[in-house]
């Protein structure tokens, strides 16, 4: 062959890479600047909540505390005033937990069975109801609030914890049902057929075949619901009484109460406390959280 004609010098081996190429500077530069915008509020909240009021009045909102104090956190938890009482957010936290647990259990249980029935046991009209359910997710809550109040009053559940549980179950149903339906529909159909040949019925297949295979989607649904229910404000205001107000409502009452001197550090501590539960869930669950909102959103 004529490879004697080829020059032996010139480029050879891997092309040298520059770590600080122009593209890289633009990409990372933009990302870092934007990150600052996203991180700023968290930084400011944490810093403010660790300062005393005198330091807040004099100092810079972005500066770290000169003297760290946890007193605002303690006051936010057990001493801040909501305009009705002065026992802080602890009461709201308890209420939110009491609202959250049954709502979570009920909504996930019902939606998973719904999704399973829709995916595997279609009956005449099931798709119609499902369509209504999905369209219902787009109806502004304000349209349905007052009639819901009447329904709950008739059921004797208005202003009661179980009324709010029911409301969360009802309004969480579209997205959760969609989530479960898509998941179950994505499971191999032959598995379902095999179970039917093996003589398992509706509940048998649900509990013995589907449930053990769908742990991930249950986790996703729970993350979605915990965040959603914990962060709810509207239903909490409308469907409960002050004694059982959830944490978000109490937080708003504390921070936006017009009485007394504004204690910004306590306010920020209270805000952080309220955001803590969903934040912890977010940081712990990471990918599953992302998967949940992406699945719920993209297919919605």
């Amino acid at each position: 062959m004529a490879d004697t004609a080829l020059p032996t010098h010139g480029p050879r081996g891997p092309k040298p890479k520059r770590a600080l190429s122009r593209t890289n500077i633009i990409v990372y530069g933009t990302l870092i600047v934007v990150s600052l915008y996203y991180l700023l509020p968290l930084w400011v909240m944490v810093m403010t909540s660790l300062k005393g009021m005198p330091e807040i009045r004099l100092g810079n909102i972005f500066a770290p505390p000169v003297e760290i104090t946890f007193e605002p956190w303690a006051r936010a938890w057990s001493g801040a005033c909501t305009g009705i009482n002065c026992d802080g957010l602890s009461r709201g936290f308890g209420n939110s937990v009491q609202i959250l647990l049954p709502s979570l259990a009920l909504s996930v249980a019902i939606a998973s069975v719904n999704g399973y029935a829709l995916a595997n046991w279609k009956f005449k009209g099931s798709e119609v109801f499902f369509t209504i359910l999905i369209l219902g997710a787009f109806i502004p809550y304000q349209v349905m609030l007052y009639p819901m109040v009447i329904i709950l009053r008739e059921l004797g559940l208005y202003g009661n914890l179980w009324g709010l549980v029911l409301v969360h179950t009802v309004f969480g149903m579209p997205i959760l049902t969609l989530l479960f339906r898509n998941y179950f529909a994505g499971m191999p159909e032959e598995l379902f057929k095999a179970a039917r040949v093996d003589g398992a019925g509706f509940w048998g297949i649900y509990f013995r075949i589907m449930l053990p295979m769908s742990l991930p989607i249950f986790v996703v649904a729970m993350i979605l619901q915990v965040t959603g229910i914990w962060n709810d404000f509207l239903f909490g205001v409308i469907f409960t009484k002050p004694e059982i107000y959830p944490m978000t409502v109490q937080l708003n009452n504390i921070v936006n109460s017009v009485q007394g001197v504004k204690e910004y550090n306590v306010n920020m501590a209270a805000t952080l406390l309220t955001g803590l539960v969903p934040l912890v869930i977010y940081f712990v669950s990471g990918k599953l959280f992302v998967r949940g909102i992406a699945a719920g959103a993209v297919k919605g």
Partner: peptide, 28 residues
């Protein structure tokens, strides 16, 4: 299906993934 006196083998095998082979065989 279970009352028809048939057994069926599927293309994707359709084995119950969370059960052992023995569990799969004895489920029906």
């Amino acid at each position: 299906p279970s009352e028809r006196g048939i057994g069926m083998v599927f293309q994707s095998y359709a084995l119950y993934p969370q059960m052992t082979v023995e569990g799969n065989l004895s489920f029906g």
